[in-house]
Simulated scan of single mutants.
Amino acid sequence: MSVRFFPARFFRPAPTLAALMVIALTCALGNWQLNRAHEKLARAARQQALAAATPLLLGPVPLAASADLADRRVRARGRFDAAHTVLLDNRPHGNGTDSRAGFLVLTPLRIAAEGGTGQGASVLVLRGWLPRDAQDRSRIAPFPTPAGEVDIDGMALAAVPKVYNLGSASEAGQKIRQNLDLAAYGAELGVTLQPLVLEQRNDTGDGLARDWAPADSGADRHYGYAFQWFGLAALTLVLLLALGWRRSRATAPAQASRMN
């Protein structure tokens, strides 16, 4: 008497296909989380390498858009256009220890043209974080905007930090918004904006919080998520094999009797 092994009989097509789909999906999500962690670590390493570099001085002539601008130290001198300050809502405190919701404060800085006459390109400055009134978000705590020419030191961001937004209606002209697109905002103001956002690091006496989260913030969390997704994939595979083994044990006697 001999018993032959037929895997196709021990793994039902529908459950097996579903399990393989779960394994493929969870592995893809795990790889995505690993890539997110690696991106943050790479950005932190880039910032560290650029920390000792001479700051890029922004002038009245707009720079050419380039990925190399991101994370560079930059400096600009000009006048804040306080009338066009925008507050981005639902933003947590950058240090990661404050659970309060708040605003990111952005104000265009108009850079004077050479010779002190006219206006050159402006740069959008991410000035800092402001806590939000828990009862009425339109009740904005006062924060002074420096008058006259100021020097702003900081780091270049490729774009304004974004959050997921369910709505699609235009927010043009509103002081409080969810997100801000750099090119669209320049068109809205009718000015030429530098192809970067200046994340301010120096103090100008406005009372805004500027303890920005480090570039590698959250990398450990992404590794943890990746471990969970890969763990789920491994568990699904173990369950698939275990159920197949149990089915093979249950069908082996009946198969052996038919072959005798």
Results as ranks from 00 to 15, higher is better:
3 V>I: 15
4 R>C: 07
4 R>Q: 14
10 F>L: 05
10 F>V: 12
12 R>A: 15
14 A>H: 10
14 A>Q: 12
15 P>S: 08
21 M>F: 14
21 M>D: 00
23 I>L: 12
24 A>K: 09
25 L>D: 04
26 T>C: 15
27 C>Q: 02
27 C>T: 14
28 A>D: 01
30 G>L: 10
31 N>M: 11
33 Q>T: 06
34 L>H: 05
35 N>H: 14
37 A>N: 01
39 E>M: 09
40 K>Y: 04
40 K>W: 03
46 R>M: 09
48 Q>L: 11
48 Q>K: 14
50 L>G: 02
51 A>L: 12
51 A>C: 08
54 T>H: 08
55 P>C: 07
56 L>H: 08
57 L>I: 11
57 L>S: 10
59 G>P: 08
64 A>E: 15
65 A>M: 06
67 A>Q: 11
68 D>R: 14
69 L>P: 05
70 A>K: 02
71 D>L: 04
78 G>W: 01
80 F>C: 09
83 A>Q: 15
85 T>S: 13
85 T>C: 07
85 T>F: 04
86 V>W: 00
87 L>W: 07
87 L>R: 04
92 P>A: 12
93 H>E: 09
94 G>T: 02
97 T>C: 00
103 F>N: 00
103 F>Q: 01
105 V>F: 00
105 V>T: 02
107 T>W: 01
107 T>H: 04
112 A>G: 05
112 A>W: 00
113 A>R: 12
113 A>H: 07
114 E>V: 07
115 G>K: 01
115 G>S: 05
117 T>I: 03
117 T>N: 10
118 G>C: 08
118 G>S: 06
119 Q>T: 14
120 G>F: 02
127 R>N: 03
129 W>G: 01
130 L>A: 02
139 R>G: 02
140 I>C: 03
146 P>N: 05
146 P>T: 03
147 A>R: 12
147 A>Y: 00
148 G>N: 08
150 V>Y: 01
152 I>Y: 02
153 D>L: 12
154 G>W: 01
157 L>Q: 05
158 A>V: 05
160 V>N: 01
162 K>R: 15
173 G>L: 05
173 G>V: 07
176 I>T: 05
177 R>A: 01
179 N>W: 01
180 L>I: 03
184 A>S: 13
185 Y>A: 00
185 Y>R: 02
193 L>Y: 07
195 P>H: 09
200 Q>Y: 03
200 Q>P: 02
200 Q>E: 11
201 R>E: 12
202 N>D: 15
203 D>T: 10
204 T>H: 11
208 L>E: 01
209 A>D: 13
210 R>D: 03
213 A>V: 06
214 P>G: 06
215 A>C: 09
217 S>H: 13
217 S>G: 13
218 G>K: 10
220 D>I: 07
223 Y>D: 13
225 Y>P: 03
225 Y>G: 07
226 A>Y: 05
226 A>F: 05
229 W>L: 11
229 W>K: 10
232 L>F: 15
233 A>I: 06
234 A>P: 00
237 L>C: 11
237 L>I: 04
239 L>C: 13
245 W>C: 10
249 R>W: 09
249 R>A: 14
251 T>Q: 14
251 T>F: 02
253 P>S: 10
254 A>Q: 15
254 A>W: 06
257 S>E: 12
257 S>H: 11
258 R>N: 09
258 R>C: 08
259 M>K: 10
259 M>T: 09
